[in-house]
Amino acid sequence: MSDVTSQDPQSSVLEGADLDATKRDGGSPPKSGRPPAHLGRTAAPAPIRLAGGKFSDDLRAILMVWKRELIRFRRNGLRIATSIVQPVLYLFVLGTGLSSLVGKGMPAGSGFNFKTFMFPGIVCMTILFTSIFSSISIVWDREFGFLREMLVAPVRRSSLVIGKCIGGATTSFLQAVIMLALAGLVGVPYTPLLMITLIGEMLLLSLSITALGIVLAARMKQLDSFAVVMQFVVLPLYFLSGALFPLRGLPGWLEFLTRVDPMTYAVDPMRRTVLEHLSIPEAARSIFAAPVTWFGWQVPIGLELGVVAAFGAVMLGISIKLFSKMD
């Protein structure tokens, strides 16, 4: 041991001649795991301060994971384009088609545009689909090995999850902003206060749904499972959220399901915010702007947003737990 660990500067010269010694007595190789003594007397690598588990190190990790999501998003124009096609189809094709139907039941000349009703729901849909899609990229990372590079890094797993969550949420938020820009086309005014409120609500939903997506992706081994997630999680969340129809006068079983869908508590505040900024006939308002109720009690917007935030926090907690257990 003392040969290898010698700290005498004089002996720190590599003695190549020692190599011959091992050759000479090579008749019977020792079966020990002891390295030859000439090794070990080499100069140490350039000293470098290493990450020390401090908060600033975790912050750097979070920012870098976030930044990577943005770089990848920016490089993928096709992804942005395709993610916009679906909500545009819903809003302008389905929305226009349904408008002619819904319009018939309205008092003549009420001037209520069904697309205005649909708009907040479609923005939420954009967030739902793109957030889930961004977090599913974890499965890609696993398949192409990059996840391993992240998992072996000497940072807390929570930093990776938080970075991924903020990153995924940012990209889906940006895509929802593109949809928000279309507000004028469906009769929603660009009032600053309205826009700021909507943006705040969109950010909250993006974070919560991305956290949900990470939970789903954490255990997913193959991309094939993505279709399962779409059918069993994303579409039910979407159809039950009230994005497409008012949550009033529904059969009991359906009403119950809509009330346990966390998306409901994101769509409703956004719709209420939008419709409050418009002058629409009372008859239309009572149908389309009717707030969500729990056993007849009208749920305040603050509480609704609290439900979304709590859901997101729980999902984030679960995903951190799942990531911490990953090898």
Binding site: G52, A61, M64, R68, R72, N76, D141, E149, M150, V155
Partner: peptide
């Protein structure tokens, strides 16, 4: 391989440097 194909060589290294806390 455990590289990110969508990033440049430099970005892959930068990612690593940040996660390993290189000053």
């Amino acid at each position: 391989t455990t590289l990110d194909d969508y990033l440049t060589a430099e970005e892959n290294l930068k990612f690593h440097a940040e996660l390993y806390g290189v000053p």
